[in-house]
Computed example of a mutant assay.
Amino acid sequence: MRQYGKGRWLAVCVLLALLSACHRSPPEQQVRAAIQQAVEAARSRDAGALDDLLTPDFVMPDSRFDRRRLLGLLRVARLRNEKVSVLLGPVDVEMRGERIVATFTVTLGGGGRLIPERLGVYRVESAWREEGGDWLCYSARWKRTL
């Protein structure tokens, strides 16, 4: 009887572990995590990792950058072995219907000819939507603050 009780307890533990693994975090937390992943992708100059966080129709209104140019900049920075410095400030996340708007400050810098050493501090407003179970950025506006 004791052996049966231990087996049942183990089965319950495994079931609880599986259920918790299937549980998705709230959308706001998913977007915050995606923003942190984008920061890490920029730091490591990993265009592929950043591309995974953007929708195919990603735009940067009022900017000379679009998705292709943004990813190209990271690829060239990697080829030239240039340093990319990214410091993320607090992230504010707001649900707007089925979309999320996340605003934050980011301090960008570099260490080469492509990316200047002191690039500046920017206020970013990014818009996110869920696609295929993942929250992806479809728009970002940057405004230099310093």
Rank of each mutant, 00 (worst) to 15 (best):
A47I: 00
D92S: 14
D66Y: 06
A102T: 06
D52K: 12
D52Y: 10
M95T: 12
P56H: 11
D46S: 04
R96Y: 08
K83P: 09
R96S: 10
G48P: 07
V101P: 03
D57F: 11
R67P: 04
L50A: 10
R45C: 09
V86E: 05
L87F: 15
D92W: 13
L50S: 09
G48V: 10
L79G: 15
F104C: 01
F58I: 04
R78C: 12
R64G: 14
T55I: 05
R80G: 05
D51T: 10
A77M: 01
A102S: 07
L53E: 06
T105L: 12
A102N: 05
R96A: 09
E94K: 13
L74Q: 00
G72D: 05
E94D: 12
G89E: 05
L53T: 06
R68H: 15
V93Y: 02
G89W: 03
R78Y: 14
V86Q: 04
S63V: 04
F65G: 01
V59A: 09
L79D: 14
V93H: 03
R64L: 13
R99Q: 13
L71K: 06
R69G: 06
F58Q: 02
A49I: 07
R75N: 11
K83S: 13
L53M: 07
G72Y: 01
L54C: 08
V86Y: 04
R99H: 13
E98C: 06
V91W: 03
L88F: 06
T105F: 12
D66M: 03
R67A: 09
V84P: 00
A102E: 02
I100V: 07
K83D: 13
S63E: 02
F58D: 01
R99G: 09
I100S: 00
V59T: 11
L74S: 00
V91F: 05
V86R: 03
D51R: 11
V59N: 07
R78Q: 15
T105Y: 13
L70V: 09
D51E: 13
R96V: 11
V84E: 00
K83G: 10
R99V: 11
F65M: 07
D66R: 06
A102W: 01
G97D: 03
